[in-house]
Computed example of a mutant assay.
Amino acid sequence: MPPSNPRAIPVSKYMDELSKSITFRVSQLEKETLDDIARRARRPLAELLREALGMVTSGHRSSVPIAPPELLRAVARIEADMDEVTRVLRRAEVDDGFLDHLAILSLLVGIDRKLGKLAHSHWSWR
């Protein structure tokens, strides 16, 4: 009789039980890099290596890449610029309804240039 909760039955991810091992040598830097990749993926290194070799497929979602800190800081600065544009627009609405189109346009052009530089540096970083 099948159980009412089929997920409660432990099912091995792999067809055969894992009882054999393979050893290969890597440099200290390569080992640290592999460990770092596994840590970021929050998965065992052996599982990642088996997947890379096409031996198994995992049910894990692909991991979200970690953005470099300088990219996050640049995005935060652009967000602050957008907040400034919002403040200018709200002040203009509260005052007499007059919008300083030139000031708004200059802020938007500045933000556009920053985004262009950021996109260029990000894609050249990859």
Rank of each mutant, 00 (worst) to 15 (best):
Q28V: 15
L53G: 14
L49R: 07
R113Q: 12
V94I: 07
P69A: 08
Y14D: 02
E51A: 00
T23D: 02
S58R: 13
R42L: 09
Y14R: 03
N5L: 01
A80G: 13
D83P: 02
S121V: 13
R77P: 02
E47D: 15
R91N: 10
R61V: 07
V64E: 06
K20T: 14
K31S: 14
V64M: 10
D83H: 08
H122P: 03
R39L: 15
A74E: 07
A74S: 08
E51M: 01
S106D: 15
E70Y: 01
L115I: 14
E84H: 09
G54Y: 09
R113M: 08
R40Y: 06
A76Q: 02
V11K: 04
R91I: 13
L89E: 05
G116Y: 11
D112T: 04
L49D: 05
G97H: 10
S12P: 04
P2N: 04
K13F: 00
A92E: 05
P69I: 02
L118D: 07
V56P: 01
G54V: 07
V109R: 01
K31V: 13
A76Y: 02
M82P: 08
I37F: 00
W125H: 14
L99C: 04
E70V: 01
T23K: 04
R77G: 00
D35S: 11
V56D: 03
L108K: 01
N5K: 06
E17A: 09
R42A: 12
D35K: 11
R87K: 10
D83Y: 04
R87E: 02
G97V: 10
R25D: 11
A52H: 10
S58N: 11
P6L: 04
W123Y: 14
V64Y: 05
T86L: 04
I111T: 00
G54I: 12
A119Q: 13
V75P: 00
T86W: 02
L29C: 11
T23N: 07
E93Y: 05
R7P: 04
I22P: 05
H60V: 09
A119M: 10
R73A: 05
P3W: 06
T86E: 07
R7V: 08
L118S: 04
H101R: 13
A38Y: 01
R61D: 08
